[in-house]
């Protein structure tokens, strides 16, 4: 199986075209196996009682951050569908929807970076050497702060991969016609080949990581994180069961009653 697609042009030069899409099936198969193995291990393990969602509500995600997450997710799935479906044979006019979603994703990420740098606690998501103790697992492992090592790792991987996709996507966007500019020829064929290769490799890796992200979100013991991303809060018992209150001390969800009364994304939780 090839990793990279080349083409010999009329002068006998090898031209780099991009990633070999045969790898897509490998990524799908590998991700499926990882998920199945994890699910089997979890099934064999006895799961304890789940912490209650009742009682005091604590703020986990502010409304702005939840909006960012869901806009990013929507843009990502539009990008994935419009980018990959034509490659697997589903033909439709995909390019405009793709780059429009690409611009939405780029804008959302710029917003997120600025907000994270100036308004949020950047350290909460950053992997520190002390976090590695979580790898021990079981009772010996310390409880994490706001984000577990696995969550931090997932965020880091997604962040790097999305930044590669966005960076190369913007370079590719400059090479096509849009309502604002006619295509430029600033990249050589070889440089373009690298852009397509990196765009394709990041796509493949993102498919794997996004599938894992969805799987973990759907797991029963982690579903309260999904609720937190929709409604903004976790309960005091959930905090106690999964996090170390000494390392993460969230505020009360702004007006627990309001959060209950209007549980949509708009419910404010700082």
């Amino acid at each position: 199986m090839e990793i990279v697609r080349y083409r010999e042009d009329v002068w006998g030069r090898e031209v780099l075209l991009g990633v070999s899409w045969d790898l897509l099936w490998l990524v799908i198969a590998a991700t499926f196996i990882v998920i199945m193995v994890h699910a089997a291990i979890m099934l064999a393990r006895k799961s304890g009682p789940r912490p209650s969602a009742d009682g005091e509500r604590l703020s986990r995600h502010a409304a702005q951050d939840r909006w960012f997450h869901w806009i990013t997710a929507a843009a990502f799935f539009v990008l994935l569908a419009t980018g990959v479906l034509p490659i697997v044979g589903v033909k439709f006019p995909w390019l405009t929807a793709h780059w429009v979603a690409g611009i939405v994703l780029t804008a959302a990420i710029v917003f997120h970076i600025v907000r994270s740098l100036f308004w949020k606690d950047l350290a909460a998501i950053w992997i520190k050497p002390s976090d590695l103790a979580e790898l021990a697992g079981g009772a010996a492992a310390p409880l994490p702060g706001k984000y577990s090592l696995a969550q931090k790792g997932m965020h880091l991987a997604m962040a790097v991969l999305v930044l590669v996709a966005v960076g190369t996507g913007i370079a590719m966007l400059v090479q096509i016609d849009t309502p604002w500019w006619a295509r430029s020829n600033f990249l050589s064929e070889a440089a373009l080949g690298w852009m397509f290769l990196l765009h394709g490799l990041s796509t493949l890796a993102l498919i794997g990581f996004a599938a894992l992200h969805l799987y973990f979100t759907a797991r029963p013991e982690k579903q309260f994180y999904l609720r937190a991303m929709v409604k903004g809060w976790v309960s005091r018992s959930e905090l106690a069961a999964h996090h170390d209150p000494a390392r993460w001390t969230p505020d009360a969800a702004a007006s627990g009653d309001a959060a209950q009364a209007s549980p949509g994304l708009g419910a404010d939780a700082r």
Partner: peptide
């Protein structure tokens, strides 16, 4: 025989 879009290329 150039490796343009229609030939599977990127330009």
């Amino acid at each position: 025989g150039l490796s343009c879009y229609r030939a599977g290329g990127n330009t």
